[in-house]
């Protein structure tokens, strides 16, 4: 009963926050509502028995998306003070009927899918059966790396493509609106970083290692690690640079390249494409993916092609 009430509260919160995000009177409030929406979404995932998704949503969906939105907002505000930032909502007589109609449609579809007699998914059953033979406790990591590896490989490519496309846009004026704080530094920031950065690295390594037997994995770990990077940028320890140094470039590409190369090796002795040659390959690829994800997200946040030592660095 209490569980049901809690779920009701979360569901109502989701709806309310979503509505606030799209209609609130200032864009800044909208972003804050959206971030809180993401965190509530993480709660919802935890409630429906999907802790992996809860972690991913909290770290990636709410945390980093929120950070990216805030820094984009700041660039908007700082770039052209003459132009109005937010024109406010448009008047549309059709908006409400269309919204209600599509909501109803999705509701009917969703409820009938939920209450139709579905057999347990064949793919899911096959995964659980096959995982018996592999020493990998977390079936989601199994699906992502062993059975649907090409999805994961291409997904890392999607993240890389988003960065490359954003970098291609940045053009020559990438210096504007850097997210670094202005003004002198307080000693407390240094103290915070001295504690939080090692702790964040520890947590991400733990998440990475845990991903093989309990909730966690490369994406969650990479997002947490990127959080540390965001903190370093905000405190002026590192800053955006025009181009990436060799180390940053290697880190950026490590995940995709190692996945492809390890995936291609079985072909040399007649094996199937992307068949990973053992669990060590899973761990190796996950580690490389963690680094790549973290660096890509940090670069997207910094808004440049690379990283350099910041003014407080």
């Amino acid at each position: 009963m209490i569980g049901f009430l809690l779920d009701g509260l979360i569901a109502a919160g989701l709806v309310g926050l979503a509505y606030q995000a799209v209609t609130s009177r200032s864009l800044f409030r909208g972003i804050i509502h959206f971030v809180v929406f993401g965190l509530t979404m993480a709660l919802a995932w935890a409630r429906v028995g999907a802790p992996d998704l809860a972690m991913a949503e909290a770290a990636i969906g709410a945390g980093l998306t929120g950070a990216l939105m805030l820094v984009a907002y700041r660039r908007l505000v700082e770039d052209r003070r003459d132009a109005p930032v937010d024109p406010g909502p448009a008047k549309s007589r059709l908006a409400l009927p269309i919204a209600i109609g599509s909501g109803l449609l999705v509701g009917v579809i969703g409820l009938s899918a939920l209450f139709s007699d579905v057999e347990p998914g064949q793919a899911g059953q096959a995964v659980l059966a096959d995982l018996q033979q592999v020493d990998l406790g977390n079936p989601i990591t199994g699906v992502l790396l062993l059975y649907r590896g090409i999805d994961t490989l291409l997904e890392v490519a999607v993240l890389l493509t988003a960065f490359l496309a954003a970098r291609a846009l940045a053009g020559s004026e990438s210096g504007t609106g850097s997210p670094t704080t202005q003004g002198p530094e307080t000693p407390m920031v240094g103290a915070l970083l001295a504690v939080v950065i090692p702790l964040t690295v520890l947590v991400s390594v733990h998440l990475l290692r845990a991903g093989s037997y309990e909730p966690g994995g490369a994406f969650q770990a990479g997002a947490v690690l990127a959080g540390a990077g965001v903190l370093l940028i905000l405190s002026g320890r590192i800053a955006a640079a025009e181009t990436a140094g060799l180390l940053v470039r290697m880190g950026l590409l490590a995940g995709l390249v190692s996945f492809i190369l390890i995936g291609l090796t079985p072909l040399l002795h007649g094996g199937p494409l992307l068949a990973l040659p053992g669990l060590w390959a899973v761990y190796f690829i996950e580690t490389a993916m963690m680094v790549s994800i973290a660096i890509t997200l940090v670069l997207l946040f910094a808004g440049g092609g690379g990283l350099k030592r910041g003014k407080h660095g």
């Binding site: 064949q122 793919a123 062993l146 059975y147 094996g271 199937p272 992307l274």
Partner: peptide, 13 residues
Amino acid sequence: HLALAGHASPLGI
């Protein structure tokens, strides 16, 4: 047909 990672559908892709 080419079963990626050696896992035919529905398990693999």
